[in-house]
Lab assay of single mutants.
Amino acid sequence: MTEYKLVVVGAGGVGKSALTIQLIQNHFVDEYDPTIEDSYRKQVVIDGETCLLDILDTAGQEEYSAMRDQYMRTGEGFLCVFAINNTKSFEDIHHYREQIKRVKDSEDVPMVLVGNKCDLPSRTVDTKQAQDLARSYGIPFIETSAKTRQGVDDAFYTLVREIRKHKEKMSKDGKKKKKKSKTKCVIM
Rank of each mutant, 00 (worst) to 15 (best):
D54Q: 02
K182A: 05
K182S: 06
S122M: 10
D126K: 10
L159N: 03
D108R: 07
F156M: 14
K180M: 05
I36F: 05
Q43Y: 09
D126P: 07
S181Q: 14
I46G: 09
R73L: 06
V45R: 11
C80K: 00
A130S: 06
H95P: 02
E31P: 05
M170W: 15
D69V: 02
Y64S: 07
C118W: 08
C51N: 06
S17D: 00
S65Y: 12
E91D: 08
K128Q: 07
Y157N: 09
C51T: 06
I100F: 05
K42T: 04
S65I: 02
T35F: 15
A130F: 11
V186S: 12
F78M: 14
K104N: 15
I55D: 00
E98V: 00
H27T: 09
Y71F: 04
N116D: 14
K117C: 13
S136M: 13
L6W: 15
L79H: 01
V186M: 09
T2V: 04
N116V: 14
P110W: 00
D54W: 00
E76T: 15
C80Y: 04
Q70Y: 15
H94E: 10
Q99V: 13
Q131L: 06
G10I: 01
R164G: 09
K167R: 04
F156G: 05
L52G: 03
Y40Q: 00
R135Q: 07
V44L: 12
G138T: 08
R135V: 06
Q150L: 06
K128G: 06
K88P: 15
P34W: 15
G60Q: 15
E62Y: 03
Q129W: 10
E162C: 04
S136W: 03
F90M: 15
E168A: 09
R102L: 11
K182Q: 10
A18K: 00
Q131E: 11
D126Q: 06
Y4K: 15
E62H: 06
L133A: 04
E37H: 02
F82N: 04
D30M: 09
I36Y: 00
E76F: 14
A83M: 04
G13R: 03
Q43L: 08
D108M: 11
L56K: 02
V9N: 02
L79T: 01
D47Y: 02
L23I: 10
P34K: 14
H95Q: 11
V45W: 04
P110F: 02
T127G: 07
I24K: 05
R149D: 13
P121F: 12
C185N: 10
F78E: 00
C118N: 09
K42L: 03
H166D: 13
S89C: 15
I36Q: 00
R123P: 08
D153V: 09
V114A: 03
E37K: 01
I46F: 05
V109Q: 03
V8N: 00
I100C: 09
C80L: 14
K175A: 04
I21Q: 06
D126V: 07
V114P: 01
M72V: 08
K179Q: 04
F141V: 11
M72G: 02
T50Y: 08
T20S: 05
L133H: 09
K175L: 11
G115I: 11
V29A: 08
L120G: 14
I93R: 01
K88V: 14
K42N: 03
L159H: 04
G10V: 05
K169Q: 13
R73K: 11
Y96C: 08
L133Q: 04
P34D: 04
A155L: 14
D108E: 10
K177G: 06
K117W: 12
H27K: 13
V29F: 09
G60D: 15
S136P: 14
K180G: 08
D30V: 04
S136L: 12
V8K: 02
P34S: 15
F90E: 06
I187N: 11
E62D: 11
K165P: 04
V186R: 04
V103R: 13
A83E: 15
D154F: 08
M170D: 14
Y71I: 13
D132L: 04
F156D: 02
L159Q: 01
G75W: 03
G12C: 01
K169C: 09
V160K: 06
L19D: 07
V44N: 10
E3T: 04
A66V: 10
A83R: 11
V81P: 13
R73C: 09
L56F: 06
D105H: 05
D153Y: 08
Q43W: 05
G10L: 01
D154S: 07
H94P: 05
V8S: 01
A155Y: 15
L79Y: 12
Q61P: 14
H27D: 09
T20G: 04
P110A: 03
K182M: 05
L159E: 04
A134P: 02
V160M: 09
K104P: 04
S106C: 09
L79P: 02
Q22D: 15
G60P: 14
G12S: 03
A155Q: 13
S17I: 00
R164T: 14
R97Y: 13
K101H: 10
H27N: 08
K167W: 08
L113T: 02
A83C: 10
K178Y: 06
K165T: 13
M111A: 01
S145V: 12
G138W: 02
K180E: 05
T2L: 05
L159D: 04
R135I: 12
H95I: 07
V103D: 09
D154K: 06
N116I: 12
Y4N: 08
T74I: 05
D119T: 15
Y64F: 05
D173A: 11
G10F: 03
I84Q: 15
G10Y: 01
S65Q: 04
R97D: 06
A130C: 11
E63Q: 03
V7M: 10
Q25L: 14
S136N: 04
Q22M: 04
T183I: 04
Q25E: 02
K169V: 06
S122R: 07
G15D: 03
I142M: 02
T50S: 08
K172H: 05
D54L: 00
G115N: 04
V7H: 05
F156N: 05
D38Y: 02
Y64T: 08
T50W: 06
N86V: 03
V103L: 14
Q22W: 12
I142R: 12
Q129L: 06
S171M: 11
M72S: 08
D132P: 09
T58N: 04
V186G: 05
I100Q: 00
I24E: 00
M111L: 07
P34T: 15
C118E: 07
V7S: 07
S65K: 02
Y4A: 14
E107D: 09
E62W: 04
V186L: 06
K165M: 07
I46K: 04
K42W: 01
L19E: 14
L23Y: 06
K180A: 12
G15L: 00
G75T: 12
P140T: 04
Q129V: 08
G138R: 09
